[in-house]
Amino acid sequence: MSHTAHIPSHRKPRRSAPKTALRAGVAGGVLSTIAVAGAAGPAQAEPVTQTIEMPTLTSGLSTSVAASAEATQQVALDLETQAHEDAAATSAAKAATKAKAEAVRKAEAKKKAEAAAKAKAEAALRASRSEARTTLSASGSTAVASSSSSSATGSAASVIAFVKAQVGDAYVSGGTGPNSWDCSGLVQAAFRTVGVDLPRVSQAQSTAGTQVSLSNLQPGDILYWGGAGSAYHVGVYVGGGQFVGAQNSSTGVVQRPLSYDPPSGAVRVL
């Protein structure tokens, strides 16, 4: 063995033959490609002049934007219109509620006023009847005394006799005898017996003669209930504070004291 065999060598290790050949081939191929490109380059190189046209979007975009703006404006107008309509409806509802409340208030006030007027009229009527009863009681006493000293004569006596003869007959609306009467039918028939032709109805009979005071009655005077010219009932004063009349369907023709149903006034025909 050599005396230097154990010392490592300072030379680079040799590459293997296959690797060296491969690298050389690759390098040579690259260089050849570059050379060919360099030779052909100046003759074939031309500038690229093709222009690519992009689609025009301006027209369609404008139409779309305009349509969108118009739709937005229409929506705004619709919302504004709806707001006005809602406000008008609210205002109308408030006005209707207020008007209804006012109408109810007026109706209630009118009802109260009518009730008060009715109560006042009824009170006045009661007072009037009470006064009439007092007057009739006094005049009745006077009439009784007068009747005791003198009785009806002539035509008045005939009228009184006729009405007294019908006491107990039936009351029938529109009745003119001989066995059923209404109030004015009885009075008309009684005066017809003495040749006096009276109107048929109570209203006209209450103004057929001279108005006399209830405190100055004479036998044969016509009594009426209600106003002169608007009376709803009539009868005949027979003296002694009594009258005869066809009252109603329940009582028929009756003789009663004046206090039983105080009349409103009287007329003298005889």
Score class of each variant (00 low, 15 high):
107 A>Y: 05
107 A>R: 10
108 E>F: 14
109 A>T: 13
110 K>P: 09
111 K>N: 14
111 K>L: 14
111 K>S: 14
112 K>A: 15
113 A>K: 15
114 E>K: 13
114 E>Q: 13
115 A>S: 05
115 A>K: 12
115 A>W: 08
115 A>C: 14
115 A>Y: 11
115 A>M: 06
116 A>L: 10
116 A>W: 08
116 A>F: 07
118 K>S: 12
118 K>Q: 12
118 K>M: 15
119 A>P: 04
119 A>I: 08
119 A>Q: 08
119 A>F: 02
119 A>H: 09
120 K>S: 14
120 K>R: 11
120 K>H: 15
120 K>D: 07
120 K>Q: 13
120 K>T: 10
121 A>F: 11
122 E>N: 14
123 A>Q: 12
125 L>W: 10
125 L>N: 11
127 A>G: 03
127 A>E: 07
127 A>F: 03
127 A>R: 02
128 S>R: 03
129 R>F: 05
129 R>E: 08
130 S>Y: 00
130 S>W: 00
131 E>C: 06
131 E>N: 10
131 E>I: 00
131 E>Q: 09
132 A>S: 10
132 A>I: 00
132 A>N: 00
133 R>Q: 02
133 R>F: 00
134 T>A: 13
134 T>L: 11
135 T>S: 07
135 T>R: 03
136 L>R: 00
137 S>P: 13
137 S>V: 01
139 S>Y: 00
140 G>W: 07
140 G>Y: 05
140 G>K: 04
140 G>F: 09
140 G>L: 04
141 S>K: 11
143 A>F: 05
146 S>A: 15
146 S>H: 04
149 S>C: 12
149 S>W: 11
150 S>C: 04
150 S>W: 05
152 A>V: 07
152 A>N: 07
153 T>F: 02
153 T>L: 06
154 G>H: 10
154 G>F: 08
154 G>K: 06
155 S>Y: 06
155 S>H: 12
156 A>M: 02
156 A>F: 01
156 A>W: 03
156 A>Y: 03
158 S>K: 15
158 S>V: 12
159 V>D: 04
